[in-house]
């Protein structure tokens, strides 16, 4: 399964400027996802992070990974779609800066899934370079 930006916006509870996934190129519902975020020089965060050296904040990489995980869980889920919230960020490491012009490729693989929560291992890459990785736990907090 793939998801274009319109489908992503329909699935995620987020809205501009906080939708941090542009496309999902491979989704296996409830199991894994590979998703893309094209980082541009007009991102709202570039104005302040940092004025003369634009870098994607690490916390937004975590958020992009969390949204990818959210899509992995919501794709193929019958309505009403659950609302997932991040519950735990573990062993996240940032290895290389992500800058305007980069395409962030987020891959997530579910490690443990139950009806109301899940844990996933995530890796963020730019090209062949692994720029960040970690483990995210998220749980349902209601319906979207």
């Amino acid at each position: 399964m793939t998801l274009d930006f319109d489908q992503i916006c329909a699935l995620l509870p987020h809205a501009y400027p906080f939708v941090l996934i542009d496309r999902a190129v491979e989704v296996v519902p409830g199991q894994s996802i590979t998703a893309l975020k094209n980082v541009t020089g007009t991102e709202p965060f570039v104005q302040g992070h940092f004025p003369r050296r634009a870098l994607m904040p690490g916390v937004l990489m975590i958020e992009a990974a969390a949204q990818a995980c959210c899509l992995m869980m919501l794709a193929g889920h019958p309505s009403p779609k659950p609302l997932y919230a991040l519950g735990r960020v573990e062993r996240f490491r940032f290895r290389s800066p992500v800058r305007p012009g980069d395409q962030l490729v987020v891959t997530a693989k579910a490690d443990k899934v139950v009806s109301t929560a899940a844990i996933a291992e995530v890796v963020c890459r730019v090209g062949e370079v692994e720029v960040a990785s970690g483990r995210l736990s998220f749980g349902q907090v209601g319906s979207a």
Binding site: G87, R88, D111, K112, V114, A117, A118, I119, G139
Partner: peptide
């Protein structure tokens, strides 16, 4: 412990 940590424990037990 909370529900997220209990799920983590379950994953490690598995």
């Amino acid at each position: 412990l909370d529900s997220m940590l209990l799920l983590e424990i379950a994953a490690k037990v598995e």
